[in-house]
Design a protein around this nucleic acid. Sequence first.
DNA 1: CAGGGCAGGATTGGCGACAATATCGTTGCC
DNA 2: GGCAACGATATTGTCGCCAATCCTGCCCTG
Lengths: 223, 223
Amino acid sequence: MSAAPSIPPGSDPVVEVIRAAIVRGDHVPDQRLVEVDLAERFSVSRGAVRSALLQLGNEGLVERIPNRGARVRAVPPAEAIEITEVRMVVEGLCAAKAAQRVTDAEIAELREIRAEMIAAVEAGEVVIYSRLNNRLHRRLVELSGQATTGGALERLRGQSVRHQFRLALQPGRPAVSLPEHLAIIDAVCGRDPVAAEQAARGHLGSVIHALRMSADTASSRAS
Amino acid sequence: MSAAPSIPPGSDPVVEVIRAAIVRGDHVPDQRLVEVDLAERFSVSRGAVRSALLQLGNEGLVERIPNRGARVRAVPPAEAIEITEVRMVVEGLCAAKAAQRVTDAEIAELREIRAEMIAAVEAGEVVIYSRLNNRLHRRLVELSGQATTGGALERLRGQSVRHQFRLALQPGRPAVSLPEHLAIIDAVCGRDPVAAEQAARGHLGSVIHALRMSADTASSRAS
DNA sequence: CAGGGCAGGATTGGCGACAATATCGTTGCC
DNA sequence: GGCAACGATATTGTCGCCAATCCTGCCCTG
């Protein structure tokens, strides 16, 4: 394995573990994160947990109130939409760049992902599809060669994973997102920057639309 | 000058002080940042400095090598260009949103900035103009109502301030950027989202072009 | 019975000291 | 004369303790 794990080097392992625990859903939004609990849970010192929570705090994953501790932040739907809007334009840019720089080997890799996605949807394997989804988006940004951008996007995405995931589980959702994903892949493999940008924008635009619907039904159901 | 609480809330004051010192140029790129030096320089404990460097590290302003300390990161021109490309699309989005949401009072404020910019350029006050420039960009993002986006942009911008500033000092540069800024302001004040997005993109596209030229001359001069 | 004040417990914040590690200068050897 | 190993120093990383702050439940009072 050659290279480049997405956020590997230098990043505190404790941060990764806690982040993973939150993303995985071990901790629900608004749940308190007590330093000593986490410390003995992961068998590390309290200082390590402390600095990890600090970092996760300014990544926006947890909310830190002075003298009152940290809790996992509940990202409101409006903010998830906002984040996705930014992703729409930035990933559009990245898709265009990727289309310009993609190599033959990378095209083969994308085609492989493409085939796996189709297979996953046909088999009704939503969680596999969801994972391929993340992998595709991340790989496209990597292919664009924009390292700094990738970091910023990763952080943004981290805050909306929960919403993204809930969306992916909606029945019928894969059927609409699959062709959009295929369009992105085809445009990049065809080395057509304009089409790639349009396809990426179109896809995330569709995600935004779905998020809006989801937010509406949630609020009306609450009444 | 009262207060420009650009990133005020909750943020550790020590982080702000060190960040300001770096941005101001007190520390040149690649210069080592020794914890105890900074600690006594700012009359705070080493722990405070330590956690501040941690945070600045994952903001990308300083580079931290394990067991070897922190140094202010030298942002290569290619990366400054990359960052500006992202700003181009994101601030384009924000300008469009701002054009939709701007209030009459805010339009008056923008017109005031507009007048000050023209005056600064006519008077040849480049540093005042540069400051107005930053204020305009920041205000536009605020007006778009995208808080999370604003944070991400702020972080990105922090890494390229040095390049931005050097650019602003180039003779003839204000003459080309001023009309672009005016176009953005006019589009937003005219509540025309499409024009605002185009204007913002055009402006940052021009900045990218200038950065490329600057990078070229710098590399040829180095030979 | 309701409201306000008060103590007890729990949790975070900060500080200092100690241990681990890298860097640099020196010395000795080939 | 150059190179390698070694020791001294400077700097970072981590741990444990104590002070500050906040929340909870209880008791006293009106």
